[in-house]
Nucleic acid binder design. Structure first.
Length: 256
DNA sequence: ATGGCTTCATAGTGAAGA
């Protein structure tokens, strides 16, 4: 079983890339973030023609998440239960016996800002909700754009970024708290190339110079982590004309 | 160098992303 996550930065603009990527890679599950699309405009027909179903929670201009999959998704939940939030940042569904949770964590803008406080509050609410969710669904995968680089090796220039949003201590602590529930960053279960990143700024030719951050992750509960045989970043779509600024992250699960 | 691009909502610019 192949599961993946990709912040597409507008599904309307990136739909051709997404369809090409699905055709080439044939994932069983693809989680999307920043669809920036109202549900009425979601491209269900195009995905259906590509052999995929989808569940989605979107809004105009900002945010928006979706789970695209070959098999039928069940028990769909949108948003963090008990956390009032206008912004569409979480969708969960059961696919082939696995609880798939797709998240778009707030960016946080800058340390100390209102948006930073919202990011930390959102992460705290996610943590509280996941603690229960993983008891209900022991086979749980948390995929998405976390907007957090877990360690300095996930940052192209740690000195330039020290204390900045996406790498600050409280954000990293919040991610570690989520991992302590029993969710494992499967990317680090395997030998990886030096300077592996998932996001590169559009400006300054950042991709060509590999000035990136690893902020998109796949966290797996213990039973799934045990069955994980590979996790990779696919840089190919970032090289296309008019790319998303994020690259897909892909994990392979044996026996599922 | 606190910018640099890209998208969206707009109809000339401004917000937001990371």
């Amino acid at each position: 079983m192949k599961i993946a996550t990709w912040n597409v930065n507008s599904l309307k603009v990136r739909l051709p890339h997404v369809l090409d990527w699905l055709a080439t890679n044939q994932p069983d599950v693809l989680c999307l973030q920043e669809t920036k699309q109202e549900d009425l405009k979601f491209p269900s027909d195009e995905l259906d023609r590509a052999g995929y179903q989808a569940v989605f929670s979107g809004q105009k201009t900002y945010n928006g998440v979706a789970i695209v999959c070959k098999a039928k998704p069940a028990d769909v939940v949108c948003g963090i239960t008990g956390f009032t939030d206008e912004q569409k940042r979480l969708i969960a569904a059961t696919v082939l016996g696995i609880r798939v949770v797709c998240i778009y964590v707030p960016n946080g803008q800058s340390v100390g800002s209102d948006k930073y406080q919202y990011k930390l509050a959102w992460l705290a609410a996610l943590h509280a909700w996941l603690k229960e969710e993983i008891l209900r669904y022991p086979k749980l995968a948390l995929l998405g754009d976390y907007n957090i680089a877990p360690e300095d090796r996930d940052v192209h220039d740690p000195q330039a970024w020290v204390g900045n949003v996406l790498v600050s201590g409280p954000e990293r602590d919040a991610l570690h708290e989520i991992e302590r529930i029993g969710l494992h960053d499967c990317f680090r279960q395997f030998e990886q190339p030096e300077k592996s990143y998932t996001w590169w700024d559009y400006r300054m030719m950042a991709f060509r110079r590999n000035m990136g951050l690893r902020i998109d992750h796949i966290l797996l509960s213990a039973p799934l982590a045990k069955s994980c045989t590979a996790c990779t970043v696919d840089r190919a779509p970032r090289k296309l004309e008019r790319p998303s600024d994020h690259a897909p992250v892909v994990a392979e699960l044996a026996a599922y």
